[in-house]
Amino acid sequence: MPTTPSPNPPEAPDTAGADEKVPFHKRKADKVDRLAELMGDREAGSHGAGVWREAFQRMRRSPMAITGAVIVAVFLVIALFSPLIATYSPTSQAWGGEVFPNRNEFVGPRAENWLGLDHLGRDMFSRMVIGARQTLLVGVVATLVGFLFGALLGGLAGACSVLGGRWGRQVDNVVMRVIDMMLAMPTLLLAVTVAALVGPSLTTVMIAVGIAQVPIFARLLRGAMISQGNREYVLAAQALGVRKRRIAVTHILPNSMGPVIVQSTLTLATAIIDAAALSYLGLGNPDASYPEWGTMLSEAQRFLSSAPSLAVYPALGIIITALGFTLLGEALREALDPKLRK
């Protein structure tokens, strides 16, 4: 007999005719149980893990995930503890007298300033470190805004289209036409419009970039949900009388999140770039002296021929960060993909 408490074969409270004769399937189940017992609990421990823990275990073995995680972790540490790491104030022009952009005289890396000075004589390293925090903030908040509203609209449209019947398809239609209108506008133009309407500030940039991502998230999630809605397990769940809301939330949604998660990592990267573009257009943080990688990049553009390193540092920062998030997201998608599980 199994020592597990819940299934209690002899006293099972069902079956009317089980008085004298043990039914066949129970006899067999007993046998199978005994066999499982004898074979021992070999796999115990690896079971009982949730989707995310299981995904995490898979990711630990993936070099892609490790690379991505290391990059993201380093970036996060720098961003979160930037005031402690930065060696000088990012706005202090203490070395202003040593840099003459008009004469193409710049100061490169040296013991005092690890990455050299920018065109106004500010410490490049400190600006990069403080800029990381701004960049992280813009990227994460913009992506969250896009993800949240996009998933909300897309999820609503997808669920209505799959399960809502005639009326639901009308809802889907209306929502998606609105999304189409948003999608018809170029991302940057949309962001500029929003930023211009609300007024220039860092918050504006985050909201604007986020809203520009909404239609992409919405379409992606809706498409995935509709394709999942035609799958047989949805029909099976319906056949068992599961409520529509529950089918949408526990069955269709988790199966549709894969592409959305990947998209959000890509969006993190583009959001950083879009935010830089908005800052460049003067719609970002009104305090231009406060560092942000995008702003630094656009400022360095003027001195590209004489001091390319001024552009290279923030560019590298953006590229590596974006790469880190993308690798991590891609690895996460693979780890969550049930088809690739072994």
Partner: peptide, 22 residues
Amino acid sequence: AADLLYRVGIPDPTRRLNEYPH
């Protein structure tokens, strides 16, 4: 649920409850 799985002949049902279809 464990009892149900047991009744249809799935051994070690409490463990199976946490497993995925694949």
